[in-house]
């Protein structure tokens, strides 16, 4: 019951944030200098043609009315047409978003699967060699720009060792359309195509690793410090006095309360994760939302830019909602207080 109340509150907040986001995106898109209609038609177009397109796009209407149109479309899931591809922005985004989503999911998984145990090991052997090693690793991964990590990994694993593919999502000769979720790994399993699944994982590994490094370092550092903080709490000492064995103390009594800070950090880091994804996608020719987003930005394709930013924003808000729910799940204090 208390969990439901907590959830409802969080969802209402998220909606409010999204409304704010839509206003900001719209305002920014309309104040940037340059005429989208002129950009789309090119320098040879006549003034009449430009005026016609402006009319068609509603660019000559009052700004409030334009926002109304934008919201009306948005509420029906319609983001308008792209001037660049001359297709509905929806279709463009649907095709590219799955790839980005898959990349980001794999990144978060990698960052947690490696970051948390590294942090636990560092805390367990504080000031001993494992701790020093993890701290050095964490600092390096945090200060290495992801495009640099991407290039290094690409050269090392792709061109020197020849163990992993360096570009794209699947081999050219493999025909498979991810039509259910847009995630190749999930859809291939649903279709029972294990060969596609294996290849998809191989293609995913390098870009996800490049993107995960920075986040992994952060998570390891935060897990380490929060484990150390929790380990000096009275309740850990008490469980020791009551004879609870060390593995249970470390992996149950210490790890669960220590899990909240890394989760929260992930929520905050998520924005820079999306930003980095844009660069990493370019390096690995990953057919995600990034290449589309960058092309549309350069072309001043307003509807598409707003669509990309809006979708990224919704993604960000949803991920943070999920994280909040997870934090509430991990820590009863949050959901009990949050429901009041």
């Amino acid at each position: 019951m208390e969990f439901l109340l907590f959830l409802v509150r969080r969802i209402l907040w998220s909606i409010l944030v999204l409304v704010g986001l839509s206003i900001v995106i719209f305002a920014i898109a309309r104040v940037v200098p340059g005429d989208p209609a002129r950009m789309a038609l090119g320098p040879t177009a006549t003034a009449q043609q430009v005026a016609d397109l402006q009319e068609k796009l509603g660019l000559n209407k009052p700004i409030v009315e334009q926002y109304g149109m934008f919201i009306a479309g948005l509420s029906q899931g319609d983001l308008g047409r792209s001037l660049l591809t001359e297709r509905p922005v929806n279709d463009d985004i649907r095709e590219t978003f799955g790839a980005t989503f898959e990349l980001v999911l794999a990144t978060i998984t990698l960052a947690f699967v490696f970051g948390v145990p590294l942090g636990v090991a560092a805390a367990r052997w504080k000031d001993k060699w494992p701790d020093t090693l993890v701290r050095i690793l964490a600092i390096f991964s945090a200060v290495t720009p992801s495009f640099f990590a991407a290039l290094l990994l690409q050269i090392l694993a792709g061109y020197v060792l020849h163990i992993l593919p360096t570009t794209g999502r699947l081999p050219h000769n493999m025909e498979f359309v991810a039509s259910v979720t847009g995630l190749l790994t999930v859809d291939s399993l649903l279709a029972g195509r294990l060969d596609v699944f294996g290849e998809a994982l191989r293609y995913l590994l390098l870009p996800a690793t490049a993107l995960a490094l920075a986040t992994m370092g952060q998570i390891a550092r935060i897990t380490r410090s929060s484990m150390i903080d929790v380990s000096s709490q009275d309740y850990i000492e008490a469980s020791r006095a009551f004879g609870v064995p060390e593995p249970i103390r470390v992996f149950k009594y210490m790890l669960r309360p220590s899990f909240v800070p890394p989760l929260t950090i992930l929520g905050l880091e998520f924005a820079s994760l999306i930003g980095n994804a844009f660069v990493v996608e370019l390096v690995f020719a990953w057919p995600g939302i990034a290449s589309y987003g960058i092309r549309t930005i350069l072309q001043k394709d307003l509807n598409a830019v707003m669509g990309v930013v809006m979708v990224s924003g919704v993604f960000f808000v949803l991920v943070n909602l999920v994280i909040d729910v997870l934090v509430g799940f991990v820590d009863p204090r949050v959901r009990i207080r949050g429901s009041r």
Partner: peptide
């Protein structure tokens, strides 16, 4: 042992 501080001697998340 009976611990001193009831506020901090119980694990908050279990």
């Amino acid at each position: 042992m009976v611990f001193q501080d009831p506020m901090s001697s119980l694990n908050p998340v279990f």
